[in-house]
Design a binder for these strands. Sequence first.
DNA 1: ATCGTCAACATGCGGT
DNA 2: ACCGCATGTTGACGAT
Length: 219
Amino acid sequence: MGDEELCNTGLALSIGQFVPRRDQQKNKHVVCLDLTIPLHPKQEANIDAECRSEGSSLKTVDEDEAQTSKNNKICGRKKLRLSKEQSTLLEDSFKIHSTLNTSQKQALAERLNLRPRQVEVWFQNRRARTKLKQTVVDYEFLKNCCESLSDENRRLKKELDELRSLKVEQPPFYIQLQKAATLTMCPSCENVVKAGGDGASDAAVKNVVQHEPKKTPSC
DNA sequence: ATCGTCAACATGCGGT
DNA sequence: ACCGCATGTTGACGAT
Protein backbone atom coordinates (compact mmCIF):
# COMPACT_ATOMS: atom_id res chain seq x y z
CA MET A 1 0.00 0.00 0.00
CA GLY A 2 1.49 3.34 -1.06
CA ASP A 3 1.26 6.52 0.92
CA GLU A 4 -1.31 7.79 -1.58
CA GLU A 5 -3.60 4.99 -0.61
CA LEU A 6 -2.77 5.53 3.01
CA CYS A 7 -3.93 9.09 2.63
CA ASN A 8 -7.06 8.12 0.80
CA THR A 9 -8.31 5.49 3.19
CA GLY A 10 -9.06 7.95 5.92
CA LEU A 11 -7.85 5.44 8.42
CA ALA A 12 -4.21 5.42 7.86
CA LEU A 13 -3.52 8.68 9.22
CA SER A 14 -0.96 10.03 11.37
CA ILE A 15 -0.53 8.06 14.47
CA GLY A 16 -3.14 8.84 17.06
CA GLN A 17 -5.00 11.14 14.71
CA PHE A 18 -7.77 10.72 12.24
CA VAL A 19 -7.67 12.50 8.94
CA PRO A 20 -11.27 12.97 7.86
CA ARG A 21 -11.97 11.76 4.37
CA ARG A 22 -14.77 12.94 2.16
CA ASP A 23 -17.59 10.46 2.14
CA GLN A 24 -17.24 8.63 -1.14
CA GLN A 25 -20.97 8.57 -1.85
CA LYS A 26 -22.28 11.77 -0.37
CA ASN A 27 -19.30 14.07 -0.63
CA LYS A 28 -19.48 14.74 3.06
CA HIS A 29 -16.81 14.61 5.63
CA VAL A 30 -16.95 11.76 8.04
CA VAL A 31 -16.71 12.53 11.70
CA CYS A 32 -13.41 13.57 13.14
CA LEU A 33 -12.24 10.82 15.40
CA ASP A 34 -9.25 10.43 17.56
CA LEU A 35 -8.14 6.91 16.91
CA THR A 36 -4.99 5.11 17.60
CA ILE A 37 -4.67 2.22 15.22
CA PRO A 38 -1.83 -0.22 15.37
CA LEU A 39 -0.11 0.06 12.02
CA HIS A 40 2.13 -2.16 10.05
CA PRO A 41 5.77 -1.07 10.49
CA LYS A 42 5.94 -0.20 6.78
CA GLN A 43 2.92 2.04 7.13
CA GLU A 44 4.45 3.78 10.07
CA ALA A 45 7.59 4.35 8.07
CA ASN A 46 5.57 5.87 5.26
CA ILE A 47 3.68 8.11 7.60
CA ASP A 48 6.88 9.19 9.32
CA ALA A 49 8.34 10.17 5.99
CA GLU A 50 5.20 12.04 5.10
CA CYS A 51 5.10 13.90 8.36
CA ARG A 52 8.77 14.77 8.05
CA SER A 53 8.34 16.18 4.59
CA GLU A 54 5.27 18.13 5.58
CA GLY A 55 6.93 19.48 8.67
CA SER A 56 9.93 20.61 6.72
CA SER A 57 7.68 22.25 4.13
CA LEU A 58 6.61 24.63 6.83
CA LYS A 59 10.10 25.75 7.63
CA THR A 60 9.84 28.89 5.55
CA VAL A 61 6.45 30.05 6.75
CA ASP A 62 6.03 32.18 9.79
CA GLU A 63 5.09 30.95 13.21
CA ASP A 64 1.38 31.72 12.86
CA GLU A 65 1.09 29.87 9.61
CA ALA A 66 3.00 26.97 11.04
CA GLN A 67 0.70 26.87 14.03
CA THR A 68 -2.36 27.12 11.81
CA SER A 69 -1.18 24.30 9.62
CA LYS A 70 -0.41 22.25 12.67
CA ASN A 71 -3.92 22.84 13.95
CA ASN A 72 -5.34 21.88 10.58
CA LYS A 73 -3.40 18.69 10.61
CA ILE A 74 -4.68 17.82 14.01
CA CYS A 75 -8.22 18.79 13.22
CA GLY A 76 -8.31 17.11 9.82
CA ARG A 77 -7.90 18.53 6.36
CA LYS A 78 -4.40 19.69 5.71
CA LYS A 79 -4.43 23.03 4.02
CA LEU A 80 -1.01 24.35 3.42
CA ARG A 81 -0.05 27.57 1.77
CA LEU A 82 3.07 27.15 -0.27
CA SER A 83 5.87 29.46 0.70
CA LYS A 84 7.01 32.14 -1.69
CA GLU A 85 10.19 30.22 -2.44
CA GLN A 86 8.22 27.06 -3.20
CA SER A 87 5.78 28.91 -5.45
CA THR A 88 8.61 30.63 -7.30
CA LEU A 89 10.44 27.40 -7.93
CA LEU A 90 7.25 25.67 -9.06
CA GLU A 91 6.43 28.55 -11.39
CA ASP A 92 9.93 28.48 -12.84
CA SER A 93 9.65 24.75 -13.42
CA PHE A 94 6.25 25.19 -15.00
CA LYS A 95 7.67 27.71 -17.45
CA ILE A 96 10.16 25.09 -18.59
CA HIS A 97 7.79 22.09 -18.55
CA SER A 98 4.06 22.30 -18.04
CA THR A 99 4.07 18.57 -17.35
CA LEU A 100 6.51 16.47 -15.38
CA ASN A 101 7.64 12.92 -15.70
CA THR A 102 8.06 10.78 -12.63
CA SER A 103 11.73 11.52 -12.07
CA GLN A 104 11.29 15.25 -12.60
CA LYS A 105 8.42 15.23 -10.17
CA GLN A 106 10.45 13.35 -7.60
CA ALA A 107 13.44 15.65 -7.97
CA LEU A 108 11.33 18.76 -7.71
CA ALA A 109 9.53 17.41 -4.69
CA GLU A 110 12.84 16.81 -2.97
CA ARG A 111 14.05 20.31 -3.77
CA LEU A 112 10.83 21.77 -2.42
CA ASN A 113 10.55 19.50 0.58
CA LEU A 114 7.13 18.45 -0.63
CA ARG A 115 5.60 15.12 -1.43
CA PRO A 116 5.54 14.17 -5.13
CA ARG A 117 1.76 14.06 -4.89
CA GLN A 118 1.74 17.72 -3.83
CA VAL A 119 3.91 18.66 -6.80
CA GLU A 120 1.65 16.66 -9.07
CA VAL A 121 -1.46 18.37 -7.72
CA TRP A 122 0.15 21.77 -8.03
CA PHE A 123 0.96 21.15 -11.70
CA GLN A 124 -2.54 19.87 -12.41
CA ASN A 125 -4.07 22.94 -10.82
CA ARG A 126 -1.60 25.20 -12.58
CA ARG A 127 -2.46 23.73 -15.96
CA ALA A 128 -6.13 24.23 -15.18
CA ARG A 129 -5.51 27.87 -14.28
CA THR A 130 -3.52 28.41 -17.46
CA LYS A 131 -6.26 26.88 -19.56
CA LEU A 132 -8.90 28.98 -17.85
CA LYS A 133 -6.95 32.17 -18.49
CA GLN A 134 -6.44 31.18 -22.12
CA THR A 135 -10.15 30.50 -22.45
CA VAL A 136 -10.90 34.00 -21.18
CA VAL A 137 -8.43 35.47 -23.66
CA ASP A 138 -9.89 33.41 -26.51
CA TYR A 139 -13.38 34.44 -25.55
CA GLU A 140 -12.46 38.13 -25.65
CA PHE A 141 -10.75 37.70 -29.00
CA LEU A 142 -13.73 35.89 -30.54
CA LYS A 143 -16.13 38.41 -29.06
CA ASN A 144 -14.20 41.24 -30.71
CA CYS A 145 -14.16 39.32 -34.00
CA CYS A 146 -17.90 38.80 -33.76
CA GLU A 147 -18.54 42.46 -33.06
CA SER A 148 -16.41 43.68 -35.95
CA LEU A 149 -18.02 41.16 -38.32
CA SER A 150 -21.45 42.32 -37.22
CA ASP A 151 -20.45 45.91 -37.89
CA GLU A 152 -19.15 44.94 -41.32
CA ASN A 153 -22.33 43.01 -42.02
CA ARG A 154 -24.48 46.00 -41.09
CA ARG A 155 -22.36 48.29 -43.27
CA LEU A 156 -22.60 45.97 -46.27
CA LYS A 157 -26.37 45.57 -45.89
CA LYS A 158 -26.75 49.31 -45.79
CA GLU A 159 -24.58 49.66 -48.88
CA LEU A 160 -26.61 47.01 -50.65
CA ASP A 161 -29.87 48.81 -49.86
CA GLU A 162 -28.45 52.04 -51.22
CA LEU A 163 -27.34 50.32 -54.42
CA ARG A 164 -30.76 48.70 -54.85
CA SER A 165 -32.54 52.02 -54.49
CA LEU A 166 -30.20 53.55 -57.08
CA LYS A 167 -30.92 50.70 -59.49
CA VAL A 168 -34.65 51.33 -59.30
CA GLU A 169 -34.19 55.01 -60.11
CA GLN A 170 -31.91 54.46 -63.07
CA PRO A 171 -30.89 51.18 -64.64
CA PRO A 172 -27.18 50.60 -65.07
CA PHE A 173 -25.61 51.88 -68.26
CA TYR A 174 -24.76 48.46 -69.60
CA ILE A 175 -28.42 47.48 -69.45
CA GLN A 176 -29.37 50.58 -71.44
CA LEU A 177 -26.81 49.61 -74.10
CA GLN A 178 -28.26 46.12 -74.24
CA LYS A 179 -31.72 47.54 -74.85
CA ALA A 180 -30.47 49.85 -77.58
CA ALA A 181 -29.01 46.90 -79.45
CA THR A 182 -32.48 45.39 -79.73
CA LEU A 183 -33.95 48.43 -81.45
CA THR A 184 -34.14 48.98 -85.17
CA MET A 185 -35.34 51.74 -87.37
CA CYS A 186 -38.47 51.27 -89.39
CA PRO A 187 -37.57 52.19 -92.94
CA SER A 188 -41.05 53.29 -93.79
CA CYS A 189 -41.90 55.57 -90.90
CA GLU A 190 -38.35 56.13 -89.60
CA ASN A 191 -39.43 55.44 -86.03
CA VAL A 192 -37.49 53.25 -83.68
CA VAL A 193 -39.22 49.94 -83.24
CA LYS A 194 -38.59 46.99 -81.04
CA ALA A 195 -37.05 44.09 -82.88
CA GLY A 196 -37.85 41.57 -80.17
CA GLY A 197 -36.83 40.95 -76.53
CA ASP A 198 -38.25 39.97 -73.22
CA GLY A 199 -40.71 41.54 -70.82
CA ALA A 200 -38.00 43.38 -68.95
CA SER A 201 -36.90 44.97 -72.19
CA ASP A 202 -40.47 46.05 -72.85
CA ALA A 203 -40.43 48.01 -69.65
CA ALA A 204 -37.07 49.50 -70.47
CA VAL A 205 -38.18 50.79 -73.85
CA LYS A 206 -41.56 52.04 -72.85
CA ASN A 207 -40.45 55.56 -73.59
CA VAL A 208 -39.74 54.52 -77.15
CA VAL A 209 -42.50 55.03 -79.67
CA GLN A 210 -44.59 51.95 -79.84
CA HIS A 211 -44.94 51.15 -83.47
CA GLU A 212 -48.34 49.92 -84.60
CA PRO A 213 -47.76 47.30 -87.18
CA LYS A 214 -48.83 48.54 -90.52
CA LYS A 215 -49.39 46.55 -93.52
CA THR A 216 -46.20 47.69 -95.04
CA PRO A 217 -43.54 45.22 -96.08
CA SER A 218 -40.87 46.73 -93.84
CA CYS A 219 -42.89 46.49 -90.65
C1' DA B 1 -20.41 38.34 6.11
C1' DT B 2 -18.94 37.74 1.66
C1' DC B 3 -15.96 36.80 -2.01
C1' DG B 4 -11.77 35.16 -4.50
C1' DT B 5 -7.96 32.10 -4.48
C1' DC B 6 -5.96 27.77 -4.29
C1' DA B 7 -4.43 23.18 -2.33
C1' DA B 8 -6.53 18.90 -2.17
C1' DC B 9 -9.60 15.74 -3.76
C1' DA B 10 -13.08 12.85 -6.81
C1' DT B 11 -14.21 11.17 -11.07
C1' DG B 12 -14.12 9.95 -15.78
C1' DC B 13 -11.50 9.15 -19.90
C1' DG B 14 -7.82 7.89 -23.06
C1' DG B 15 -3.35 5.85 -23.77
C1' DT B 16 -0.22 2.04 -22.73
C1' DA C 1 -4.98 -2.90 -14.79
C1' DC C 2 -2.51 1.08 -14.29
C1' DC C 3 -1.21 5.78 -15.00
C1' DG C 4 -1.61 10.63 -16.14
C1' DC C 5 -4.49 14.14 -17.25
C1' DA C 6 -8.76 17.23 -17.62
C1' DT C 7 -12.40 18.82 -15.23
C1' DG C 8 -15.38 19.90 -11.51
C1' DT C 9 -15.88 20.37 -6.51
C1' DT C 10 -14.74 21.18 -1.68
C1' DG C 11 -13.13 23.60 2.08
C1' DA C 12 -9.46 26.51 4.29
C1' DC C 13 -7.85 30.89 4.30
C1' DG C 14 -6.97 35.80 3.43
C1' DA C 15 -8.77 40.21 1.97
C1' DT C 16 -12.43 43.51 1.91
